[in-house]
Amino acid sequence: MRSLPLAIAAAALLLAGPAPAQDMQNLLDQAGKALDQAGRRVQQGYEDTAKAIDQAIANPQDPAYGSLATRLIRSDVLDSAQRPIGEIADFVIAPNGQVLLAIVRIGGTLGVGGRLVAADYGQLEPVLMKGHPAFVYKGDLGALPDYKVAAGN
């Protein structure tokens, strides 16, 4: 953020002793502009979040707009030719709410058997397949190491 360095510079000028009034006014003007710009960015962030929530509510089956995680569990994972290669078993979510990994079951039949792998969530592209949420994986799921759940979890 630019406003913090400007505030520090203003404090340093005040502590340094008398300064020309014009220099002080310029510095205060720059600090005011930086604060106004930061306020506009925060407001835009709120508006973008509200729009995303409205789109997720209006398009509950389309993961491109966001969705409840429970609706995405068991969603198909597709290859680049949109052939099923696995299904979503779970997600790993950071404390800040960012989805980090998708736990994908590959090689099983109807959710039974197979193995679990942890795929980088950024490698999954949400799509709508026959009216249901699905994900296209941009890589080779079979090349990923097995995902093991720690004992006691």
Rank of each mutant, 00 (worst) to 15 (best):
A58Y: 09
G152V: 02
Q82G: 06
N96P: 07
D120R: 12
D29I: 10
Q22Y: 05
G17R: 01
P84I: 01
P5C: 03
T70K: 14
R40S: 03
A52Y: 07
G131C: 06
L4V: 11
F135I: 05
A21T: 06
A19P: 05
V127P: 07
T70V: 14
G39Q: 01
P133D: 02
L35N: 14
L13Q: 09
Q43T: 14
L27K: 13
G113T: 04
A143V: 03
Y147P: 14
A94W: 04
L72M: 10
A16H: 07
A64M: 14
R71M: 10
I8P: 01
V112T: 11
L6G: 00
G139C: 06
P84W: 08
M24Q: 00
A31S: 06
R71F: 10
L141Q: 03
S75A: 15
N96W: 06
V117P: 11
G86Y: 01
D146R: 10
Q55N: 14
Y121S: 15
G113W: 07
G111D: 06
A118G: 15
Q61E: 09
S3R: 01
A151H: 02
V136I: 15
L101T: 04
Q37W: 10
D62H: 06
Q22N: 09
P126N: 10
Y137T: 07
D90T: 04
G17K: 01
D79M: 00
L72D: 07
R71G: 12
A89R: 07
L14K: 11
L124R: 07
I8F: 00
G142F: 02
L128G: 06
L14R: 15
I103A: 11
Q43D: 13
T49Q: 02
R41G: 13
E87W: 04
Q82N: 13
V104M: 05
L27G: 12
A102E: 11
D48K: 11
D90K: 05
V112H: 14
V92L: 10
N96H: 03
M1P: 15
P133C: 00
A50W: 00
Q55K: 12
G32I: 12
A81V: 08
D36Q: 15
A81R: 07
P126F: 05
I85S: 12
N96F: 09
P20N: 11
Q22L: 14
A94G: 04
Y137Q: 06
I8Y: 03
D62L: 11
K148N: 05
G86V: 00
A9W: 02
N59G: 03
F91M: 01
I57A: 13
N96Q: 00
V112D: 13
P95R: 00
I103D: 11
I53D: 02
L28G: 09
A81I: 03
D120W: 15
E47D: 14
M24C: 01
R83D: 09
V127E: 09
L13K: 10
Q30W: 07
A9M: 13
A102L: 12
E47P: 08
G86D: 01
Q55W: 11
Y147L: 07
V112I: 12
S3M: 13
D54Y: 13
A102M: 12
D79I: 01
A16E: 00
